[in-house]
């Protein structure tokens, strides 16, 4: 009976919606990244950190499929949903042209997010690279609200490529690496000195695959639990097309429904 109840609750909790949201603001963070703040006349559905949306892109004839974008931030009080978008192709460039008051069709919330179990007082290292920092903002807030201590380790090519640093600082200590040394420590996130100093109990990562593999190798070597957020190419986002699969210990599974966040012990990456 309890199982049935919890099962139903789970389904209700993750109810998916295809909503036409309103653009409240589009903020250019640098030349290749925009922050799109969305709202709705109705209360937005609850979302969990690490979940993503599928955006239907208008005014871009060469964009056929929806664009999967991770949820950067969600705030119940202001009824806002934020998407941090890197301008990579026609679709994302069309999204950057949106103006306040424009409509955007968004299918969400999709996927399973980061680990929701936070032990009060535990230090959690959140590692982000490039636009991969996006889902860590909401997760950092979540960890802090649950009594944990989020530490952010954010990497980028140069100082100009670092995103939302001030927002991250609201929730915890921020450590930075840049490849050219223009901000923070020079090098890759896996070379940052915080890895030697801070005793954290687990790691959550989102960024380019080589960076996630490097962090996963580190976590594996020092025996710290680690979860990564994948961004495999996908079509539907609902587990129907079976395009976005990742090889796991359970075989090929859809990143859109079983992920995008996976514990590294579920993956078949070579970490030794």
């Amino acid at each position: 009976m309890l199982y049935v109840f919890l099962g139903r609750f789970h389904t209700l909790f993750y109810m998916k919606y295809n909503k036409i949201l309103t653009v409240k603001e589009v903020e250019w963070l640098n030349q290749s990244h925009v922050l799109i703040k969305l709202t709705d006349s109705m209360p937005l559905p609850e979302v969990m950190p690490g979940q993503f949306v599928q955006v239907k892109v208008e005014n871009s004839p060469r964009t056929f499929l929806r664009r999967p974008i991770s949820i950067n931030f969600y705030d119940r009080q202001s009824n806002e949903l934020w998407l941090l978008v890197q301008l990579k192709g026609d679709g994302t460039r069309a999204m950057a042209q949106l103006l306040p008051g424009d409509k955007l069709e968004v299918l969400f919330p999709l996927g399973n997010g980061f680990s929701q179990e936070v032990t009060p007082g535990e230090k959690v290292l959140l590692v982000g690279g490039g636009v991969g920092v996006a889902p860590l903002l909401l997760y950092g807030k979540y960890v802090q609200e649950k009594g944990g201590i989020p530490l952010f380790l954010l990497g980028a090519r140069t100082q100009a490529d670092l995103l939302e640093l001030d927002l991250f600082r609201q929730y915890g200590q921020v450590y930075v690496t840049t490849e050219d040394g223009s901000a923070g420590e020079k090098g890759f996130v896996t070379q940052h000195s915080v890895l030697q100093r801070a005793g954290f109990s687990r790691i959550s990562v989102c960024g380019p695959k080589p960076m996630m593999v490097a962090v996963a190798k580190y976590a594996n070597a020092v025996n710290i639990p680690c979860e990564v957020s994948l961004e495999n190419l996908m079509a539907c986002g609902l587990g129907a097309c079976l395009c976005c699969v990742e090889k796991t210990v359970r075989g090929n599974v859809c990143v859109c429904t079983e992920g995008p966040v996976f514990n590294i012990n579920q993956l078949t990456w070579e970490l030794d």
Binding site: R62, L65, V245, K247
Partner: peptide, 16 residues
């Protein structure tokens, strides 16, 4: 099934 990548977006369509 086959290995990833399994899809590519094309002009007004997709390959899988």
């Amino acid at each position: 099934g086959n290995d990833y990548p399994r899809m590519a977006e094309t002009a007004s369509g997709m390959l899988n």
